[in-house]
Design a binder for these strands. Structure first.
Length: 476
DNA sequence: ATGTTC
């Protein structure tokens, strides 16, 4: 990235001043090295986002930002419906409500190590993974509609997991305002056999150990202790979300001129929040959020089933489940005035600070768990929402390491079996149906997640609580 | 991310 276009407005905050068609400034949270290593496309993309109607405060990019479809991955942008604000299918992304959930266990790393290979094998048998993988659940039209309206609450009512899990999911596991009846038959048919599947790409299920604590009080509140085993799931709304994204990107791009919107980039396809199309997208996007909640909830149930076969009285309590590809209606203070905004977070995690409305009581004093999925074989992180993040970036933080190179480049540099052996030497068992997938996800293809979260903390976006190291990784 | 190009 060319640094010449930026004003450094804080130790970890860089601003592109408003110019041309920009309605607000564009800002990136990074240190000089992370910023320099970012693709120039990230700057171009947040400048374009800053041109969209009704945007407030600024177009933001998180420390892990990289080039995405229209919006950068690691992008945050909020729009005011009363100021002509828009909702953008490209601002949410194809993998609607992709997110991370983390379970704390009553097991130690040594308990996992004693059965590591067998446990990895059984998890890989129980968790369908990979492109086009199918689960054992088949839903008819009425069941699909109930799932799309009820999310994880529907899943729990079907026997997948426990009522206590719901309090630990964003929106209590059920996104209000979903309109299953507006979801296309094609999207529904793609998802009919994909509930309880992991998908591919950077999605994974990992058994990890708590490697180091950075905030003892927050760790206690979250139930995390050194050397404890935890289970992280990273996945989204599978074929349904992708189909909805595809359909609405096309429809919004075609409809934009009719809404008086001059798109700086066709990939930023959007519609006014108050328009029929904008409202229809929000309804089906919320249905996809429920699909992702239900999918992750079923995966929790499947993992618990496997752990029950290996351990007496193993507990996998849900710490939290939070999405990083969404558009959510939230209230934020802008210049001291509370406004109703539609906040797009694409590859960015909501990061509510202490005492925020909507947090369960047990987490309120500490702040929302901000779950950061790292790259395969490196590390993942638990952060806590920081009150300073509200003013800095509308209560948002990073979501992962961020790719340092393309999948194509990575597949040329590594082989699946080579990466698997290298990780095995580090005590990490990787299971995947795709050798190419493992090569594409090689740890070296990602930025340093440790540096990303350190900068996120220094920038006031979230506070580091715990570093997690993988032991078993199930990849798509 | 994705029945890896309806």
């Amino acid at each position: 990235m060319d640094l010449g276009q930026f004003d450094r407005i804080g130790p970890y905050q860089w601003q592109i001043p408003q110019s041309g068609g920009m309605r607000v400034p564009a800002q990136i949270f990074a240190d000089e090295t992370l910023l320099r290593d970012m693709d120039d496309k990230v700057g171009e993309q947040i400048r374009n986002v800053a041109c969209l109607p009704g945007i407030v405060t600024a177009a933001y990019a998180m420390p892990d930002a990289h080039w995405g479809y229209g919006f950068p991955i690691g992008g945050v942008a909020a729009f005011d419906p009363e100021q002509g604000g828009v909702v953008s299918a490209g601002g949410v992304g194809f993998d609607i409500s992709c997110g991370v959930r983390l379970h704390v266990t009553n097991l130690a790393a040594a308990d996992i190590r004693a059965v590591q290979d067998k446990l990895a094998h059984e998890l890989s048998r129980a968790i369908p993974a990979g492109m086009g993988s199918r689960g054992s659940i088949r839903l008819n039209d009425a069941e699909m509609a109930d799932m799309l309206a009820g999310g994880a609450a529907w899943a729990v009512a079907q026997g997948y997991g426990r009522t206590a899990d719901l309090a630990r999911i964003e929106e209590q596991g059920k996104m209000a305002g979903a309109t299953p009846e507006a979801v296309s038959a094609k999207a529904i048919n793609r998802q009919r056999e994909e509930m309880g599947t992991l998908g591919s790409g950077n999605h994974y299920l990992e058994v990890q150990r708590v490697d180091q604590l950075f905030d003892d009080a927050a760790a206690r509140a979250y139930g995390l202790a050194p050397d404890q085993a935890v289970v992280m799931i990273h996945c989204g709304s599978r074929g349904l979300g992708h189909q909805i994204g595809t359909e609405y990107l096309r429809e919004m791009a075609i409809a934009a001129p009719g809404h008086g919107i001059d798109l700086p980039d066709r990939e930023l396809a959007c519609a006014p929040i108050t328009s029929e199309l904008g409202q229809r997208y929000l309804g089906v996007m919320r249905a996809a959020i429920n699909c992702a909640f239900a999918n992750r909830q079923i995966l929790t149930h499947l993992v618990r089933g496997v752990f029950d076969r290996f351990f007496d009285a193993a507990t996998l309590d849900l710490l939290y489940d939070v999405s990083h590809n969404t558009c959510k209606e939230e209230r934020h203070a802008v210049d001291g005035v509370s406004r109703r905004l539609f906040v797009h977070r694409k590859g960015a995690t909501r990061a509510y600070g202490p005492n925020a409305a909507g947090l369960p009581e047990a987490l309120s004093a500490t702040g929302q768990p901000v779950l950061i999925g790292g790259s395969m074989g490196t590390e993942s992180w638990v952060l806590a929402g920081d009150a300073r993040s509200e003013a800095a970036a509308l209560s948002s933080a990073c979501h992962g390491a961020g790719r340092a190179m393309s999948r194509h480049q990575a597949a040329k540099l590594w082989t699946g079996s080579g990466v698997t052996s290298e990780l095995a030497a580090l005590g990490i068992t990787v299971k995947s149906p795709s050798k190419r997938g493992i090569a594409e996800e090689a740890p070296g293809a990602y930025k340093s997640v440790a540096r990303v979260v350190e900068v996120a903390e220094q920038a006031g976006l979230a506070r580091r609580v715990a570093r997690l190291k993988p032991m078993i990784c199930i990849k798509g």
